[in-house]
Design a protein around this nucleic acid. Structure first.
Lengths: 175, 175
DNA sequence: CACGAGTGTTCCATGAACGGAACGGTAGCA
DNA sequence: TGCTACCGTTCCGTTCATGGAACACTCGTG
């Protein structure tokens, strides 16, 4: 991703956030103190805004600056009915633990092949009910409950019809 | 926090990252394609760099742009021997769940007063051993284990001597 | 149809961020 | 002590991002 692409991505996020809030370009210009022309070009990605402009913009839209500029492309895995966003990576002496936020649409099955030996997955349910685990040994957890399995064989996740949100941790032992 | 403060904070982060990597200002200038003078002033916070400059800088330092610009002040709670970094907030229909990464130094006790009624805390241990819970009803969990308690009374956390890392979720019911 | 009030885009003079050159300071070395 | 090499800071001419004005366009209204 180069700067032009990033500028375009930021522009899209700004326009989406503005639309979400029902603001016109002029209204956002007034509340942020940024020129209407500047805003227009920022939304099109044809500007190279400086820090104060970005900061004022994020403030007026009530978005964290980091969220406005995130290069989430690589950190976000999205498929039909499932979205996994990397929140954190803990590099311990014996293992690396990745922490994801998992958004599961209702009723959609997500399958995953076998991972390396010793890889353990854990799902801590935040909202809804999740059925997950190794093929043939699925279990179900409700809010606040934890599912654990060794994922060296094919496995999968599924939410109740209402959908679910969970924290997924993937623990990979060091080679 | 205004723009000047943010610029100063970013400058400090840049200088720290550069020192960590053992780079001189000139070397970083060459690898990032940014002028040496610009870099010097950015590190002092006396510049208002634009997007392409920030992006090139983050790239040369191998830091995510979002991390360079994060306004972590509000999202990070740091005290003696404990650090809690907000990873995510899930706003469900019945409750709001905050997800934190918890870093606990060995042997240090962290106490917390009572929260509102119905607030539930959960600790999923990623590394080490954690003893936590309501006063008088502490329990201990090792890697991959989960501790849960209702935090409407004083409670606390403590890691083994080696320290620990965990995911903490705080579930607050909607009023 | 004319008009006013709104939209978002394009244009422009000004001021500031840019890269690079010049500078003072320090360390190593003959 | 003279020389070289490199450090980080300050300065400077050029380039470009800025806010605001001018603009084209779309509605709703009389």
């Amino acid at each position: 991703m180069d700067t032009a692409e990033l500028a375009r991505a930021i522009g899209e996020r700004v326009r989406a956030a503005r639309a979400e809030r029902g603001l016109t370009l002029g209204a956002l210009a007034r509340s942020s103190g940024i020129g209407k022309g500047s805003l227009s070009e920022i939304e099109h990605g044809s500007r190279n805004p400086n820090l104060s402009t970005l900061y004022a913009l994020a403030g007026a839209l009530a978005i964290p600056l980091a969220a406005l500029l995130a290069e989430t492309a690589g950190a976000e895995i999205a498929a039909d009915g499932i979205r996994a966003r990397l929140l954190d990576v803990e590099e311990g002496p014996d293992a690396v633990v990745e922490v994801y936020r998992l958004d599961l649409e209702g009723g959609v099955e997500h399958r995953s092949g076998a991972h390396g030996p010793g890889v353990v997955e854990r799902v801590l349910v935040l909202r809804g009910r999740v059925t997950a685990g190794r093929d043939g040994a699925r279990r179900t957890a409700g809010e606040g409950e934890l599912l654990t399995w060794v994922s060296d064989v094919p496995h999968g996740y599924r939410a109740d019809d209402a959908g679910a949100v969970a924290v997924l941790t993937v623990t990979t032992p060091r080679a």
